[in-house]
């Protein structure tokens, strides 16, 4: 563990908590893409199956459970509890165009052709594009509540911090994972436009 990865995990946890609070407090999921949230739940489910097979640390196991619970909790809030506030009309990104290529790519490019490893690779590829429906929805509605933009800023920062973690691990532990690094860079680049808007003029209330 290093400070970049710890800050990244905290930023990730913060993003998920901000989202849950936003939906719970405002009792509305307006402006939030349910499709992205479904993709995140798929990402964590596919990636954290190793919860039952390999124990890394208490921190690792607890955080995996928190991310899984939070992502399914968000889906429950969006599609069941506050279903009426879900904005179907603006959440239209075709997620099958994201899932299928990631499935194919994970079968073609992976570290090992084993079920758990293919699922891990699929989750890495899918996570890199999982935010697209949300960014698409924000661009379509032309604005985002301030709380939603803070959520996106924290979520985008988490993988940017992970890039610093990978640089650190390369030099300090000569450990690197090309698949995670390339996907992480793609994921962070997708936020660049949003980061620019968030930092220059706070995209909410436009």
């Amino acid at each position: 563990m290093n400070v970049f990865r710890l800050l990244g995990d905290i930023s990730h946890l913060l993003a998920i908590i901000i989202l849950l609070l936003k939906i719970w407090k405002t009792r509305s999921c307006a402006g939030i893409s349910g499709r992205s949230q479904v993709l995140f739940a798929v990402v964590y489910t596919a990636r954290y199956l190793d919860l039952f097979t390999s124990y890394i640390s208490a921190y690792n196991s607890i955080m995996k459970l928190v991310f899984l619970a939070a992502s399914y909790g968000t889906i429950y809030l969006m599609f069941i509890k506050f279903k009426a506030s879900y904005d179907h009309n603006h959440d239209t990104f075709r997620i099958e165009f994201l899932i299928l290529p990631c499935v194919l790519l994970s079968l073609l490019i992976n570290h090992e052709f084993s079920p758990l490893e293919i699922l891990w690779t699929f989750s890495i590829y899918l996570e890199s594009v999982a935010i697209l429906p949300q960014l698409f929805m924000v661009s379509k509605t032309g604005e985002a509540e301030s709380i939603t933009s803070h959520y996106l800023f924290a979520l985008g920062s988490y993988r940017a911090l992970y890039i610093l973690n990978w640089i650190y691990r390369y030099y300090a532990e000569s450990h690197y994972d090309v698949i995670a690094i390339v996907a992480g860079i793609v994921q962070t680049v997708l936020y660049c436009d949003f980061f620019y808007l968030y930092i220059t003029k706070g995209i909410y209330g436009q």
Binding site: R5, D9, H12, D50, S54, I56, S57, N60, M63, K64, F67, H111, E112, S114, L116, E117, W120, Y162, N165, H175, Y176, D177, I179, A180
Partner: peptide, 10 residues
């Protein structure tokens, strides 16, 4: 090089 068992990141 990361191997299946060594995915120690979230």
């Amino acid at each position: 090089k990361s191997t299946p068992s060594s995915h120690d990141e979230l």
